[in-house]
Design a protein around this nucleic acid. Structure first.
Lengths: 330, 330
DNA sequence: TTGTAGGCGTTATCAC
DNA sequence: GTGATAACGCCTACAA
């Protein structure tokens, strides 16, 4: 914290204008009961000496929710900026500000940020890499909305993304277009999100396919990570006919790995990602993906925060469905 | 603003613990002068009734800069999330929070956000589409750091990106690899940034090339916009041998337009973008670009804000150089 | 129309 | 070790 140059207060203005600080308040806030000439003079003085009302003092007198904090792993995966835009838009509807921080996905940073931000904002919305509780669950914790919910909500609120249906649709699609030897690039080694893999395995099993453990490899959540993992899978199973990826970023990596080997997409091998980020439309071939509506996710999350703030205790988590977008990679 | 459920105050804790609110303050803030047993009891009560100190009341007693606001056009162009990450990192070094808003590039929204945010944050960092002043320039305006500076700083602080050198390097590179009939996809119809075009025209002229007005077309700042503009240019000048684009997003559009026509990149026609976003490495062929160091940009911007906050009056704008990154598209 | 008093939640200062 | 008291900057009554 840097100490700012001492700011002029309402009293400085009052002194300068030769009125009581009360009159200044009236002028500043555009109240009716004031002589237009007096107001003009007061505003003139305020402008001249550089007076701006203290938001803290105002908030003290008229308490109101005004700021929510957002914690995401990073800004590299375009999914997060898209989510943040959704949150900003939804928050604007409440006239709430949005404070953004990134955790780099490190569990200790996530916990630290929750603690640090708790005192700075009225509610917290987070997409965390870890599943465990980030608050004590006690009554004194900040209103926390988790967007990483895969099971029952721990405490506070949350949004549960209906991964199963989306992944199921993706697998159905792959099978239908002829895939019999699908593999998955997973990232649950870097985070606690296991539902995508579980859904993938359940869906393929439902189709009578036995996707063994050696057909799922872990990757960093980057394009390079996806490319490396895809290369491993291609070495291990040269006959692979479909990639299902943890997210679009690693899916793009898979595209590259396939292209490096001169394989045709989707004829030789199809690729399906997850998230539905705009990048998927820009790569060649364009990427089939299970899309999340980030705008709606923002609305749901802010709504959860509002409920948490309004009522007492936890709230029922919201649900967000996702949708398979078929493009050229499958 | 939604009225929150009334939060417990320090006095509620005091009452519950049977001590003065002063003692509670000591316990909460970990002061030394307090009986360990008393502290334990106080903290226990605080936890039980859900007490959290008011940041506003604290800020009132101990004034400190703690929040800066950021205004960018959108989160769609990956340049802005990258910039925001840089700002968050730089702000963290000061223990400052970052409030993020988007203006959608609309001038009236930009002006409105500057006004609205002024009361909510200690300083403002913005990348605006318009060149005009966004504050009155009076002493009472908020500390404003502009990252869109193309001329002398208007008021407050700012960072001036040394576009000329970057574009000059790009043009030199294009000429050197044989281009004689370059064109430009510009976006200064959607914003007041004209330096990229001016630099392009100056640089080509320096090489004895006469790039007429019909060799520069305007585009929306999107991939689709770039693709459309490139198509227009290709129709108009089938012999074009190089595209210089306002930014990487429209440059990617140009790549697509060329590929649609079956032209070889860079042999038939080269493409150079601006910004150096990671997306440039993901497209095929990878994109040559004039890269900005967003992390450093964040550091410079926050530093400008700190100076503005510390001193009185305006500060000398900082300068950020940019660097040509040659990839496969040229 | 204008000014005075009280209080918002917190911390620092000074007694006890 | 603990507790009053003042002060932070502002706003909403209420009084003049």
């Amino acid at each position: 914290m840097t100490a700012p140059a001492r700011r002029p207060t309402i009293k400085d203005v009052a002194r300068g204008a030769g009125v009581s600080f009360q009159t200044v308040s009236r002028a500043i806030n555009g109240k009716a009961e004031i002589d237009p000439e007096t107001r003009r003079r007061v505003l003139e003085v305020a402008r001249r000496i550089g007076y701006r009302p203290s938001r803290h003092a105002r908030a003290l007198v008229a308490p109101a929710v005004d700021t929510i904090g957002v914690i995401v792993p990073d800004m590299v995966n375009p999914f997060y900026p898209a989510l943040i835009q959704g949150l900003i838009d939804a928050a604007a509807a409440h006239d709430w500000r949005v404070v953004v921080t990134t955790s780099d996905g490190r569990p200790e940073a996530e916990a630290r940020l929750v603690t640090a931000m708790s005192g700075q904002v009225d509610a917290l919305i987070g997409y965390f890499n870890q599943n465990g509780p980030l608050t004590s669950g006690d009554h004194d914790d900040i209103a926390l909305v988790r967007l990483d919910l895969e099971g029952p909500v721990l405490a506070g609120g949350g949004v549960r993304i209906e991964v199963e249906a989306g992944v199921s649709a993706a697998v159905d699609h792959l099978i239908q277009r002829g895939s019999r030897r699908p593999v998955m690039i997973d990232c649950s080694s870097t985070c606690d999100r296991v539902l995508r893999r579980e859904s993938f395995l359940a869906s393929t099993a439902r189709h009578g396919l036995d996707v063994g453990e050696d057909r799922v490899v872990m990757a960093e959540q980057t394009v390079a990570g996806g490319e490396a993992a895809a290369a491993v899978l291609l070495d291990r199973h040269p006959d692979v006919d479909a990639f299902f990826a943890f997210n679009d970023l690693v899916a793009v990596g898979a595209l590259r790995a396939l292209q490096v080997r001169g394989l045709q997409i989707p004829d030789d091998c199809a690729v399906v990602g997850f998230d539905g980020i705009p990048l998927g439309e820009l790569v060649t071939p364009s990427l089939t993906s299970v899309r999340l509506d980030t705008h709606r996710l923002g609305v749901l999350a802010v709504d959860q925060a509002a409920r948490l703030l309004a009522g007492h205790g936890d709230v029922e988590p919201a649900a967000l469905s996702c949708e398979l977008i078929v493009r050229d990679s499958s």
